[in-house]
Design a protein around this nucleic acid. Structure first.
Lengths: 366, 366
DNA sequence: CTGAAAGCGCTAACAG
DNA sequence: CTGTTAGCGCTTTCAG
């Protein structure tokens, strides 16, 4: 079928797909055209109905008599017809594809969300255009732009924070967006998260209860809304409740959400004489912990570490990492589910969904 | 033009974003035409040229007088015109998007490739539709089908192995495909890999040199071509060179390429009295190693583990994992680069690219 | 329940 | 260098 077939129009008879050898033999081809794709028109002709009816049949539109639907579908199968989604998209203004902006697929936290997103997308017949942004505003803006050009029906944005430029850009388009595992302090977009403030509050309490009065808070970017407005607030809440003064010097930044970035923090941490740390990313936490252990500091006896995402990594390190437990896959899945509703203009009861979290006590804390 | 016009519903409905002053004054417009999109036709009119010229200008076609191009581009900017890629795709039969089939984004090996793929895609102005297949033939076939419908210009396939059904399916379409980190024993498709056989050969030699004569080989699926035809052959080569008999009982299967799946292998390994293992996946290797350590077996003194991918995980475990080093990101990047050439019908010198590998000696081996 | 016809927004000959 | 004219393959009124 592979470029070897030509359009043959014999005796005014309907066009047929033939192998070019027979064309040469027959020698009476009136019109030859390279016929690669079988279109809705071919199906219509073969089934002796109009294109409109074919369209209705393949879209399972109710307004079509069962017999004609069957007739059409049989021809569809026989001709091996496959609808062209691009043409469909142009005509219907729906592409059944959604854009997904992710900082980095390589990051296990976001990868887990992405998997949830894709699974639900598939379930609802959507496809996903994935774009890595590195959390960089420039890249995010560029990605948004090409996604708009591609006429995606919706957008899932991951990236911890929404810069003003990104906010205004997304506001100006009329396509629905949902933030997955990412907060918008202005509360302008739909989102799916856990209650970071409460989670960190609970976690900090545990560390305080263990007798630590110099608990570090470490994040990749302290000034990002998700940290500044939520996690750090939870951390402060706990400190306040325990009557321990908040010290700005116990806030540490890792620059990147990576293992190495966490690993490099040791000296600073030691210098401030912290005995425990709340870390907002598993990779970073693993780096911090290993770095301590490697220098002879015993975890958790001399130094406790608690992390944030409960990715598989938390079970792979030794000691295993105590962590907040988040329904990672579900955050992605629910985000996509929410988006499908938005795209179909269905009612949504909650714009900002908070999924439940928990605390898992493992061996990096006492 | 850009989101400035909206339906106005005056009967006490809220959330009306209107920018048309006359509407605000009137206060009782029943319905307004929703004018969202500015098309190439609008630009043509405003710039007093034909659509064709606009098309040429925005595509930087050479056959346009510099002044007219500027004139057009100015209007483009003024009207905030953004080409509709769907219409473009229908007219040009090129969508500038490629399909990527990945077993699981959550797997660090494949995630690393995916990042390389996306970066190069972006560089060449392509977008990526990502689909998780779990290495399952049914899902792969389904994904391929929807990708064809979406008229992707090319395909990158990851999945360790090409089943016959997938092979014939991909052969029947005329779009280029390249296998990334995945082998095709029939050598029918373009691909980018390392020389798994040589790599495992070298690695097995190291373990043999350390005095192990019962070296296990563990993979997620032993019968997959990448293992059966390449890695295991390399393992056998080394055994043969060392004069050690190959024992089928020292081949272990993990079922899935996951940490847990590796972790569960301990008893079987211990039962066969192996003192070292070659593992074909980092997650599995971490599971095997931790499982040994957790049960009191000292790694590497009593048990050596060597793994395959050199993902970041190999540095996060304790001890750190000795491994084959693969240019993961590059495998993805080169695959995508190869694909761009194929999509543009450029000459390619090598159909099956082998990237260099190395051996990194860390602490899980003596 | 079905058909005719009009596009969707753009590219690509083909003239000029 | 620029305009005209056909479509690309499908959905969607609007009639009947």
């Amino acid at each position: 079928m592979n470029g070897f077939f030509y359009y043959l129009n014999v005796n005014g008879y309907s066009a047929i797909l033939v192998d070019n050898k027979s064309i040469l033999k027959e020698g009476r081809v009136t019109k030859m055209k390279k016929k690669e794709t079988v279109t809705i028109y071919d199906v219509a002709r073969e089934a002796s109905v109009s294109m409109a009816t074919v369209s209705r049949a393949i879209n399972h539109n109710h307004n079509v008599k069962p017999e004609t639907e069957k007739k059409v579908l049989d021809v569809v199968k026989r001709l091996n017809y496959r609808p062209n989604d691009v043409a469909r998209g142009l005509a219907s203004k729906k592409t059944t594809t959604v854009g997904v902006i992710i900082p980095n697929v390589t990051n296990s936290y976001f990868a887990a969300l992405a998997r949830g997103i894709d699974d639900i997308a598939e379930m609802y017949q959507y496809n996903i255009i994935l774009t890595n942004s590195d959390g960089d505003e420039k890249k995010e803006l560029k990605a948004l732009n090409t996604l708009y050009s591609k006429q995606v029906d919706g957008l899932i944005f991951m990236g911890n924070e929404i810069s003003e430029a990104v906010r205004s850009d997304m506001s100006n388009e009329r396509i629905p967006v949902v933030l997955a595992g990412s907060v918008d302090f202005q509360n302008q977009f739909n989102s799916v998260n856990i209650d970071y403030r409460k989670a960190v509050y609970a976690q900090t309490n545990e560390l305080l209860k263990n007798g630590n009065d110099r608990v570090a808070f470490v994040a990749s970017h302290l000034n990002r809304s998700i940290n500044k407005d939520y996690r750090i607030e939870g951390y402060k809440d706990a400190l306040r409740d325990a009557g321990i003064p908040f010290r700005k010097t116990l806030l540490f930044e890792a620059n990147e959400a990576t293992y190495d970035s966490g690993y490099k923090l040791r000296n600073k941490l030691v210098q401030e004489e912290v005995t425990a740390a709340i870390v907002s990313n598993d990779d970073v936490a693993a780096g911090v912990m290993n770095s301590m252990s490697d220098s002879g500091i015993n975890v958790p006896e001399q130094f406790e570490v608690a992390t944030s995402d409960n990715t598989k990594l938390t079970e792979m390190t030794r000691p295993m990492l105590s962590t907040i437990t988040q329904p990672l896959y579900d955050i992605g899945a629910v985000s996509m589910r929410l988006l499908t509703k938005l795209m179909k203009n269905e009612e949504v009861s909650e714009r900002n969904i908070l999924l439940p979290f928990g605390l898992k006590d493992r061996n990096s804390t006492k």
